[in-house]
Design a protein around this nucleic acid. Structure first.
Length: 737
RNA sequence: GUCGGGGUAGCUCAGCUGGUUAGAGCAUCGGAUUCAUAACCCGAAGGUCGGCAGUUCAAGUCUGCUUCCCGAUACCA
């Protein structure tokens, strides 16, 4: 977008079910903050919103775990996240929360408008239901044995042990975490967002309009989704923690957390407008607003496909870009709070920022390293040694040291004042140095504008490096010997000596002021402290001032230098590495204790003989009982049109290991039916077989092939499939009832 | 399984439409220097560009296959 009137910047809403680590910080918050601080320095109209995502089943799970209420959980973690972000200099204009009334209203209005406009669909589906607790169960609320690795505590959506993503149906011996009983399946009604209806729009908008300016991983993943065929997505759930679906016929239903969370950006904007007596609407409705969502790679489809469809249907503007970062690993392994292999923002703040030897500069140290290794194009890795090296030999030795030596020399050789610049003896090195400042300004701006913060920061350090070299070449400390030579050393007086020194330090100081402007979006604390040292106002940090060689007035006396950053000691990093190991070991022990407990019950049941059924075993009859669905009327059954047909041809569907494409002769017509039986039958085995087909089933696309009907199959206890068919050949097209 | 991204010097990463001896910072080693947080500055050494095949006068860069890491995920009506 060229020259937007205002900017609306968002960072992914952190989920308030626990502390968040520095990988999150590096992925979605720090880059956004740098961008926002840069825009503010440009004096743009920019609003930066974020907040805690406080709904969803994982919150209620955490409440069970901590033996408290969901509200208590979100209150606790919202407060923690909010203060952590503030402590680390993430400068939200508002950090809001989705449990607030204004968010509930906003999300409900959003749903109502889409529903009233006919943009949502209502469909029935079967969900697991806990009869004892009288409650539908989110996938997370069902535990059982993982069919892949046999882990006893797998969840309905994922096995934490082997990492496989699961559906609750796949669990062996599923149990409700609410009551412990085996859940049954029950029909429920939900609202869906028919993404499939917006394929043409998404193709144009993402694959054409943004194929150049969006990151390859974002466009690539969206392309994959679109090509795969978009499916309607449920926007409601049966749960009691969340935003009530604003309809009388939706008792006990809430908006699905993914639907309500991104609307949090809008409600946060509204709250900000109220607090600041502003109008929120232009930020979400005017086409001259540039909306940018900063996210991690796990969030791409929500922010690039689903939320934009919602926004479009609701009449809002669309994001101009969705800069998504990859992930940051830690000391050779994935960062994970639950496994204890992480550096929580909270912990870093306690260990470095709050200690007497830490403070703001340690915020900047972290911001420096996280930006320098930001996972912009691929996963990156945080190591404590890397942190120490980056801080000590780049931030301290190059940047901090340049500024320190400029200040020290100025105090020693120029009386603590900004020296005069003598144009008449200006040389090429001086010109070159001044020119470099301007070039660097351009490079930084160009990089930030395309979200390359790592490169932008490297430019700042590189400019300081050039400053060091310039000073080295000019060596004013040598020239100083010619100002007041010591005859015993054979020094010679040079009337020009002081002027040479003045020019060098004049340029070094102007460069220092420029460095303050350049470093400001990245390391705001350092920039502020530089302003104090130079006795300038914060306004000097406005971006338009960058490139100027007149930021500090001649004759102006400056404060004595103060070290901007301290070196990080070996002991500090080794302590952290040790701490990390201890933390993850402790959690591993705890988990294996749990495992051990479960295995013990297994063993006990074996020792007791076969009279007791072990938890890990599948009770087959029980399994069939579960499968009994809720009662229907004859009319419901009569709606189903069953016909006998013969399989004329069968072929494997490309890129699908379970699907067969079948031609079926129904007597009066031939049908294409796609059936998921490829693992049980090979195409040639089933040619000519008679089958029972649901003839009036709505067509459905699978792998791009439209399936018109479904074939009835029987499944035995081992999951083997058998055809349901007449026991003697009948005419194709015969009815079944 | 499928889709997407990625595997380039010890480490963190650049390398646009294929073109002379593959780049940067850090780490390492050597030199110079002392204004500076034993900092800076100069120089050297470091890579069969995950593997195999192919296209081409020429491939890190294109094609196919293969392997490893990360993310997203079906379908099974």
């Amino acid at each position: 977008m060229t020259d937007p009137k205002r900017y609306l910047i968002t960072s992914a809403l952190p989920y308030a079910n626990g502390p968040k680590h520095i990988g999150h910080l590096a992925g979605a918050y720090l880059p956004a903050d740098i961008y926002v601080r840069y825009l503010r320095a440009l004096k743009k109209d920019v609003l930066y919103v974020c907040g805690s995502d406080e709904h969803g089943a994982a919150i209620t799970m955490q409440a069970l775990k901590e033996k408290t209420t969901p509200q208590a959980i979100v209150d606790k973690y919202h407060a923690m996240l909010k203060s952590n972000m503030a402590d680390l200099g993430i400068s939200f204009d508002i950090y809001h929360r989705t449990s607030s009334p204004i968010h509930h209203e906003t999300a409900q209005e959003f749903f109502t408008m889409l529903n009233d406009n006919g943009d949502l669909e209502q469909k029935e589906s079967e969900q697991f239901f806990d009869e004892e607790a009288q409650s539908f169960l989110a996938d997370r609320y069902i535990t059982g044995t993982c069919p892949i690795c046999g882990y006893v505590g797998a969840f309905g959506d994922q096995c934490e042990k082997c990492g496989t993503s699961l559906s609750p149906e796949q669990l062996v011996n599923p149990r409700s975490t609410l009551s412990g009983i085996t859940p049954i399946k029950k029909v429920t009604t939900h609202w869906y967002l028919p993404l499939n209806k917006h394929e043409a729009f998404l193709r144009q908008w993402i694959l054409e309009d943004h194929k150049e300016d969006w990151k390859v991983n974002v466009v690539g993943q969206c392309k994959g989704w679109i090509e795969m065929g978009l499916q309607p997505r449920a926007v409601t759930r049966d749960l009691d923690w969340g935003i009530k679906v604003p309809r009388q016929d939706a008792e006990g239903k809430v908006l699905y957390v993914w639907f309500d969370a991104p609307i949090g950006y809008i409600s946060a904007t509204k709250q900000w407008a109220i607090d600041n007596d502003k109008d929120w609407k232009p930020y979400w409705y005017n086409a001259d607003t540039k909306l940018v969502h900063f996210i991690g790679k796990d969030n791409i489809v929500f922010h690039a496909i689903i939320f934009p469809v919602m926004l479009k249907l609701h009449g809002n503007i669309l994001p101009d870009n969705v800069p998504s970062n990859e992930f940051m690993n830690l000391e050779g392994d994935k960062m994970s709070t639950s496994r204890g292999w992480s550096i929580e923002m909270e912990d870093y703040i306690n260990d470095f920022v709050k200690k007497e030897n830490g403070g703001d500069q340690m915020v900047d140290a972290l911001r420096y390293y996280l930006t320098a290794i930001a996972p912009e194009t691929k996963d990156s890795e945080f190591t404590w040694k890397g942190f120490q090296d980056a801080v000590n030999s780049e931030l301290v030795a190059v940047f901090g040291n340049f500024i320190n030596r400029a200040f020290v020399l100025m105090h020693k050789l120029c009386g603590g004042k900004v020296p005069k610049f003598h144009n008449e003896i200006m040389d090429d090195a001086d010109k070159q140095m001044l020119e470099e400042i301007k070039i660097t300004k351009q490079k930084i701006a160009q990089n930030i504008e395309v979200y390359k913060f790592r490169d932008a920061l490297a430019e700042v350090i590189d400019l300081a490096r050039k400053g060091n070299k310039y000073m080295q070449d000019k060596e004013p400390w040598i020239v100083a010997k010619k100002v007041s030579p010591n005859p015993s050393e054979g020094g010679e007086y040079d009337p020009n000596a002081q002027n040479i020194i003045d020019n060098c330090l004049h340029i070094c100081l102007q460069l220092t002021a420029n460095l303050a402007i350049f470093i400001n979006p990245f390391l705001p604390n350092a920039a502020r402290r530089l302003c104090v040292m130079m006795k300038t106002v914060d306004k000097m940090l406005d971006w338009e001032n960058a490139g100027s060689a007149k930021l500090l007035s001649v004759g102006y006396s400056l404060r004595p230098p103060e070290l901007l950053f301290k070196k990080i000691e070996d002991s500090e990093v080794s302590e952290q590495v040790e701490k990390l190991k201890i933390k993850s070991e402790a959690i591993k022990m705890e988990n294996s204790k749990k495992d051990g407990g479960q295995q013990k019950t297994d063993e006990t049941s074996k020792i007791n003989g076969d009279t007791k059924v072990s938890e890990a075993q599948v009770p087959p009859l029980e399994k069939f009982r579960e499968a009994i669905k809720s009662e229907i009327q004859f009319d419901d059954f009569a709606k189903i049109d069953l016909k006998v047909g013969t399989i004329l041809s069968a072929e494997k569907v490309a890129k699908a290991d379970k699907l067969l494409k079948l031609e079926i002769d129904l007597g009066f017509e031939k049908r294409t039916v796609v059936s998921g039986i490829a693992l049980h039958f090979s195409p040639e085995d089933i040619l000519g077989k008679q089958v029972v087909v649901v003839a009036n089933l709505a067509p459905r696309k699978m792998r791009g092939i439209e399936s018109n009907g479904m074939i009835l199959m029987a499944e035995d206890a081992e999951g083997k499939l058998k055809f349901v068919a007449p026991d003697a050949v009948v005419n194709n097209g015969s009815g079944v009832s």
